[in-house]
Structures are given as C-alpha cells and as structure tokens.
C-alpha cells in the first residue's frame, strides 16, 4: 500500500508543481476588489469605539442595502496598507496618519478621502480625579515637575512615570517631555489592551498616575480623569515631530476609501460617505459592547432599532 501511496503522491506533486510552473509564466492578479459582487470589506480596528462604527455600518449595509460585509481586524498602519491594495474597501475612523496620507493619498493615489465621521477626537495628558482633588494645581503642566515624586515607580527610577498608549496611536509624548523639560520617564504600555488594564487597575487601587488618554473612549464612563493643560495648540506647532512643545490638536475623525471602490460609486460607497454620527452615539454603542458585554452585532442592532431617524439619512437616495 505504501508503494501506491508514494507513487500517487509523486504524481500528484508533479502535477501541482507543473501547474504552478505554468501559471508562473503569466503575471499574477494583484488582488484588490473584484468588481461586480455585492461584497464590502471593512476595517475593524482594535479599539471598541471604532469597532462599533464598523458594526453599525455592517448591520445597515446587510439589512438595508443587501450587501455582504466582511470585516477584517488589524492595526491601523497595516489597515492603511491593506486599503491601498484593495484588500479592504474603507476605514471608518482615522485619527490622523500624515505619513500614510502622503504615501497613499498624495503618492500613488490608491486611497481617497470619504468625509468626516462626525466624532471629534481629543488627545491629551490626564490624571485621575482623586489626584486632582488633593493637588488642585497639578492640572497645569508647569507644576508637573513639582509632583514628579508622586508618580515615581520602580520602573521609572528617580523620575515620575508617564504611561504611554499603544504604539500605533498618534503620539508626541517623548518630544513633549523633553521639550517641556519635564522630569518624567515615558513608559510604553505596548498595546491598548495593556494600557487600559493598567489604568483600570491603578484606578481601582486609587494610585496616582499620569497618562496619554483620549476621548471618545468608552472607559470614560467608569473612570474619572482630568486633563492636564499643555501649552496651547497653534496651527503648525507640531510640524516637526522632534520639536513639538504644544498640546494635541482637536481631531475631526476621518473616513477613507480605496480609490477604485470610491470610483465605482456603488450604493455601499455612497452609504459609507454619508455615514456620520455624534460622539454621544458612538460612546453609547461602545458602552453596550465594552461594559454591558453585548456582542458588537447586538449592540449595533439595538442602536439601529432606537435611532431610525438618524441612519435613514445615510441611505443613498
């Protein structure tokens, strides 16, 4: 029996190899959207707020417009890359990726803008409310050095500890600490998940911390953080990433699309361009998911059932 198996495998392998060799003579498909079919591929980011954008859009595309939606989970930078190759059609929440915009939007023109999401993002430095209650003047960056001892941990040595966010998120923290001459050591949390776990843990134990933080963020419903004022943001003050010494700008979150997908101007593309909701709406659905432990699908259905007037406006006329 062995003999037969070996002979057959040899024949099969030869067949496959020669097929592969034959096919190698022609240029390969470069992937990307194969037009015609009613399938839309959306990016699911790693944070809940943006995950619910995708969940609501998916639900509506499927139930109202008869599309099939595939969602792909990946980090932001890889998602941009995938969108430029047509492996995903759209990103629904982008906090600003100037390098990718330069490379794919202005550069090889594979990605186009698809309007605002409606949610305005805000990034900053935050401390817990219980720290502010005891040290009211801590909310000004000029006083941070005075409190460096308060934030000292074994990991940060003799400086105060500053907890950074996920490495894929927009951040000027290292430059800010250096340029504002703050006696702080930035510690990389490494991933959003560990960042959140760390903050929640410290908050529960009522320990002081200073961290990179942002809104909208579903955890704001359970932890009370107060922003530390940084030098005011002025247009262009963050142009050179090594010389930044000002606050983060307000970010109207943007949507982006693969250029070919946008050009087809299908119902799905129109719908995704129209998709626009408020910070409150997003936070509400995110809370359903993260805090009430609903599946994102159920959370989206619940919001859709309660807010018909809002999403009706997104459907293509």
């Amino acid at each position: 029996m062995n003999k037969r198996i070996i002979r057959r495998s040899a024949i099969a392998a030869t067949g496959v190899l020669s097929l592969v060799a034959l096919s190698a003579c022609s240029a390969a498909e470069t992937g990307g959207s194969k037009g015609g079919d009613k399938t839309v591929r959306l990016h699911t980011p790693s944070w809940v707020g943006a995950e619910v954008n995708t969940a609501v859009a998916k639900e509506l595309l499927e139930s109202e417009l008869g599309y099939k939606v595939e969602t792909k989970q990946m980090d932001e930078t890889p998602a941009w890359d995938a969108m430029s190759q047509g492996k995903i059609d759209a990103i629904l929440e982008d906090w600003g990726h100037p390098e990718e915009v330069k490379r794919y939007v202005d550069g090889n023109k594979t990605v186009v803008a698809a309007g605002d999401l409606g949610v305005v993002g805000h990034i900053g430095w935050f401390v817990p409310k219980y720290v502010v209650d005891e040290n009211p003047d801590i909310t000004d960056y000029k006083n941070l050095n005075k409190y460096a001892d308060l934030f000292k941990t074994p990991e940060s040595g003799d400086k105060g500890q500053f907890i950074k966010g996920d490495p894929s998120y927009v951040s000027n923290d290292n430059a800010l600490i250096k340029n504002l001459k703050l006696n702080y050591q930035p510690i990389e949390a490494g991933a959003e998940a560990t960042h959140l776990a760390q903050l929640e843990q410290l908050y529960k134990a009522k320990k002081p911390f200073l961290t990179y933080w942002w809104t909208p963020q579903w955890m704001n419903a359970t932890i009370d953080l107060v922003e530390v004022k940084l030098p005011e943001y002025k247009e262009g003050c963050d142009a050179d990433e090594n010389k930044v010494a000002c606050a983060y700008p307000e970010v109207p979150l943007k949507k982006w699309m693969n250029a070919d997908f946008a050009k087809e101007d299908s119902d799905a593309a129109k719908f995704l361009k129209n998709f626009n909701w408020s910070t409150e709406d997003q936070n509400l659905v995110a809370k359903y998911v993260a805090q009430d432990k609903m599946s994102s699908e159920d959370a989206a259905k619940k919001w859709i059932a309660d807010n018909e007037d809002k999403w009706k406006a997104w459907l293509p006329k």
Partner: peptide, 21 residues
Amino acid sequence: IGGLVGGGGLGFDVVEGLKGS
C-alpha cells in the same frame, strides 16, 4: 512579546515596527 506589556527593549521595537510605521 513582553514588548506588548511594557517590557521595552528590542521587543517593543518589533511591536512598534509591526503596528506603527
């Protein structure tokens, strides 16, 4: 993999390479 939990060093650089640009 400890780069993901604040271990720093080489692991963090790899994580940053994968996630950031």
